[in-house]
Amino acid sequence: MDTTAVQTPQSLTPKDFATDQEVRWCPGCGDYSILKQVQTVMPTLGIPRENIVIISGIGCSSRFPYYMNTYGMHSIHGRATAIASGLKACRPELSVWIVTGDGDGLSIGAGHMVHILRRNFDVNILLFNNQIYGLTKGQYSPTSEENKITKSTPYGSIDHPFNPAALALGADATFVARSMDRDPKHLQDMLKRAHAHKGASFLEIYQNCNIFNDGAFEIFTEKATKADETIFLEHGKPLLFGAQRNKGIRLDGLKPVVVSLDEGYSADDLWIHDEHDLYKAQMLVRLFDDPSVEGHFPRPFGVFYEAQRPSYEELMQQQIEAATGKYGVGDLDKLLAGSETWTIY
């Protein structure tokens, strides 16, 4: 059964997706905005509420299911992806959303993350990246920058951080995108795109932890710097950015370079984004340098890559149908008897 074919009988509103549970994130947490955008988008997807399942692991973001009036499971640390795999294998018609964080999804659960992506279960993975451990009160995470001073790294972190989008692409994810808590419209668009994609959708969402890592993404989210420090990817459009929309990225052979349209280049000279080009996507996810270093690239947001590949549950169903076609519906008596029997009279 395909969920997209099932239409909601009566129209739902964001309110229908709220629960009676008090939301307990810290005041000012970026999670509030993400919750709001998810609740806003859900009624527009045309899925009956009972067919939506949200599965999370452990961490601040993983409280998410309690605040969504759908089916949901707040599971154990790092395992939401594995639990969702079993659910989706058995119930392909459900719309399964995984809510995880940089600790849950990329540290303790990194092992399962790469496998759900390569298997391409048709699920939507929302990875809230705040580059810190919030629930355990402020240790560095696998996405924290080098030299970060935290409770567990008083001399600075010596860990090299993950690049989540590059990791997902490296695991052959069929949909890789990035958005942020402070751009509601873009986040809503990305949520819709993630849902529309058939296969595992990996959506990294920059999320501000105002208690333990406040301002980690300020440079990308604040008005004064956003236009120059970010680049919003649109399929078929040139990589253009800057407050004056006068800067762009062009490919000089295999090397991306930032150019100014005021210096003789036109939009036609720029790199034209193609969501279906794996090679270019691999370069795009690598535009990930430290914003404090002179000459750095702007950070891309949007859909890096999308490809079509059969989902795991689809292939599993096909094998079951093929086996049933070949051998007929299982006959338990035949199975129990096996191939060789003898009778005692």
């Binding site: 309690y66 499971m73 119930r91």
Partner: peptide, 12 residues
């Protein structure tokens, strides 16, 4: 999941 009217959340 899939049963209308019985949406609920469980966890550890």
């Amino acid at each position: 999941p899939g049963t209308p009217g019985l949406e609920h959340r469980i966890g550890g």
